[in-house]
Design a protein around this nucleic acid. Structure first.
Lengths: 206, 206
DNA sequence: TATTTATCGATATAATTATATCGTTATAAA
DNA sequence: TTTATAACGATATAATTATATCGATAAATA
């Protein structure tokens, strides 16, 4: 697999293609970028370019073999590989993510949550004290860490994760995290999303 | 307030600025775009341009008055205005979001969840049958809807929300929603985030 | 008071991302 | 068998977004 030079925007559209393809796999044996673009209200050239980075099987007049494309997307997106992860911050959001079974589908397996508050520790519920994080990460070879602590603690948690060998961080705190160059931070900024919503409403209702 | 011509990327950075400013309000009476940019690892011109869309009080050599800027950002982002919202889909994610108190801080007040499955209806827990959604939205003047149903049901739920007067939709399903021009869809695509994480790992570990 | 400095706002350039165009090819219809 | 068409890939153009440059200005220092 050649995971090179693929833009974040492309990468973020791939799951949409995959989802759409799965929903029409019975309907189309072959499918074209034009049809996909139409269904997802995107530009067909964009779809074609995006797909070119995971597949090279497109044929003029015919398009792509739907099942092949699904397979290629799933492989590329790592849905067929299990990635073990841990969560730091066992508050409401952390627990919710941990309890959310939907991530399995994407190859994400959340093994454990960690928290600094002794009151929430509960090993039966898979919540351990943060002191045990480094050892756990090394032993289990954890490469993905999810941060759901309050903004003011996010950076220190981030540092701890990096020290413990984590390579990719999914950050739910509304802060910018400073990390070494080779570590990826993916921000899931709910505040940012809300900003967009609220701004739209202010526009509409004024 | 003039909410015009502001790019989504800018809008998404504003909460970061606000959060940072709050964390240093005791330290700096005045603050410059340079300092903010440095702290958030952004370009100073970008910060200045972003701030120009909410404030016009920057002074050479001095920068901005921290407290004024905080106030302006909060107003602009609508954190001082309560936006009532509802959730459709009372599965794990829906319940989690509903129970998550953090949104209050951003002016988002989730009043009720709706679901089509009679087994999960529980008015004491603020989960109502989906049939009651349109009436509820109209009566309570709901303008924000949050979609946490499975991908295959997302479009019909979206249509229902639009019919019921909702103007902005926060979509957690990994699908593209088709809506009239004046309705905003903000996608919180967890699958997309995971795609980015997984791709990075594949790169690093290959 | 003159000079230096940090910073602003405005404008210009660069980089990235999206869209349009064009030649080619595989299939279907005439 | 020829012609038409849908769709591909490649390349070119347009739009958006980020970064760099520059003159102006408020405060600090000489």
């Amino acid at each position: 697999m050649f995971h090179l030079n693929i833009s974040k925007s492309t990468l973020q559209r791939l799951p949409l293609y995959l989802n759409y393809l799965k929903s029409v796999r019975d309907k189309y044996v072959n499918i074209s970028a034009t049809i996909i673009a139409d269904a997802l209200k995107l530009n067909d050239v964009q779809v074609r370019k995006d797909l070119a980075s995971v597949s090279s099987s497109g044929k003029p007049k015919v398009g792509y073999v739907t099942e092949d494309l699904i397979k290629e997307l799933e492989d590329f997106l790592g849905y067929n590989t299990v990635n073990n992860a841990i969560i730091v911050g066992a508050g409401k959001l952390g627990k919710a993510l941990m309890g959310y079974s939907g991530f399995k589908e994407y190859g994400l397996n959340i093994l454990m949550a960690f928290d600094s508050d002794p009151k929430v520790i509960d090993e039966a519920e898979r919540i351990m004290p943060i002191e045990k994080l480094p050892e756990f990460c090394r032993k289990m070879n954890i490469k993905i860490g999810i941060i759901t602590v309050p903004a003011q603690n996010a950076q220190e948690v981030c540092d701890l994760l990096v020290e413990s060998g984590v390579l990719a961080i999914w950050n739910f705190a509304p802060v910018h995290l400073r990390v070494p160059e080779d570590i990826l931070v993916q921000n899931e900024n709910m505040a940012a999303a809300l900003a967009v919503l609220s701004n739209h409403l202010a526009e509409k209702l004024k």
